[in-house]
Design a protein around this nucleic acid. Structure first.
Lengths: 111, 111
DNA sequence: TAATCATATACGGATATCCATATATAAGAT
DNA sequence: ATCTTATATATGGATATCCGTATATGATTA
């Protein structure tokens, strides 16, 4: 179960926080997209995403060679509200822009 | 300035989180009241409250020998919203009850 | 001034966190 | 099977965090 303490601990790292703010804007994102948008090393992104999955904040879905991450649909309301509130504080627009500007961005079919 | 990252880092500790949830319900609380409500050692509470003050989340006001802590009135909206959302998750009622049940509770005149 | 109550800080040690680098796994593609 | 791309994990070291205990500061009272 996800508690306020474990949830805030997960948000206390800049890398994880930015991943989540991206996921609030985009439905599903794969690791290489995070790497491009955040301009960080692949192991670093992967490790932090794995942490978010272990805590139960995100879920994963493999699509071929790509691993897609999305916000856990069963995230409690209060947790989603916390993210939405944090979203109001940040200039995430440039983040989203860098995600959109990725060349050869893999596409996920939505179903 | 207070950023989402520094804010969430401050909330990532159980002691600090519970202090803040108490402050969301009660206007101003002094250290010995926190100690009673949380049943923790005085240095531990004081250290965490000091941290919250350093980050700018709470402000202090000395009243005689008592040091009162309150939420920073200038806390940005998004931060207050985060706390309010977290408040929805927790059974803070027992916390508040333990605060109310403190014997010889010092009183602060509100002005 | 001395004694007391409330609060803050200093110190050391245990543990946790984070990173870069290297390597392992897993799924295509040739 | 081999090669390439995508992702995950292991290792070791640097740094941060947290705690209990002891002590310092500050206000109040006797």
């Amino acid at each position: 179960m996800i508690t306020p303490e474990s949830f805030f601990r997960a948000l206390s790292d800049g890398t994880r926080l930015r991943c989540l703010l991206l996921l609030l804007a985009e439905d599903a994102i794969c690791v290489c997209e995070f790497v491009h948008a955040l301009d960080l090393s692949q192991p670093r992104v992967s490790r932090h995403l794995g942490h978010l999955r272990d805590v139960g904040i995100v879920t994963t879905e493999r699509r071929g060679q790509w691993m897609y991450y999305r916000l856990n649909r069963e995230l409690p309301t209060w947790a989603r509200d916390v993210l939405t509130a944090a979203f109001q504080a940040e200039g995430v627009r440039d983040l989203r822009q860098r995600l959109a500007s990725m060349p050869n961005r893999p596409s996920i079919s939505c179903n």
